[in-house]
Amino acid sequence: MRQIIALVLFIVFVCFCSAQVNFSPNWGKRALTNPSDDTENKCKESVDTLLQIYKIIQSEAQKLLECEKYSN
């Protein structure tokens, strides 16, 4: 029953909420450097960030599994 209620609430939430965000590579006043100069550096930072996010998600999933194991 809880799952059905959660699903209905989620569908209602999704139907009433919408957003669009667009960013260009040079938006804002802080984009003073030429973007083609440090393209390799930006890609490396992006990969490092993704790896950090992956590790955080992995550790949280492990915590959830441990909680589930001990609650049974």
Rank of each mutant, 00 (worst) to 15 (best):
M1S: 08
M1C: 05
M1Q: 14
Q3W: 02
I5E: 09
A6K: 05
V8K: 11
V8H: 07
L9E: 07
F13G: 05
V14M: 09
V14F: 06
C15N: 14
C15I: 08
C15E: 14
F16S: 13
C17L: 03
C17Q: 04
C17W: 07
S18W: 09
A19G: 08
Q20C: 00
Q20T: 02
Q20L: 01
V21P: 03
V21F: 10
V21C: 04
S24D: 12
S24T: 03
P25S: 07
P25N: 10
N26R: 14
N26D: 04
N26W: 05
W27Y: 13
G28E: 02
G28M: 03
K29P: 00
A31H: 13
A31R: 15
L32S: 08
L32D: 04
T33W: 14
N34F: 02
N34P: 00
P35H: 04
S36Y: 09
D37F: 08
D37V: 09
T39V: 11
E40V: 11
K42W: 03
K42D: 08
K42P: 02
C43T: 04
C43A: 13
C43R: 15
E45D: 14
E45R: 14
S46P: 00
S46A: 08
V47P: 01
V47N: 03
D48L: 15
D48N: 14
L50A: 11
L50E: 10
L51E: 12
L51K: 15
Q52G: 06
Q52T: 10
Q52A: 08
I53G: 01
Y54K: 15
K55L: 01
K55E: 05
I56C: 03
Q58L: 09
Q58C: 03
Q58D: 06
S59F: 15
S59Y: 10
E60F: 02
E60D: 05
E60L: 12
E60T: 11
E60M: 09
E60S: 05
Q62N: 07
Q62A: 06
K63R: 14
L64S: 12
L64M: 12
L65M: 06
L65T: 06
E66C: 07
E66S: 07
K69Y: 10
K69W: 09
Y70C: 08
Y70N: 14
N72L: 01
N72V: 01
N72K: 13
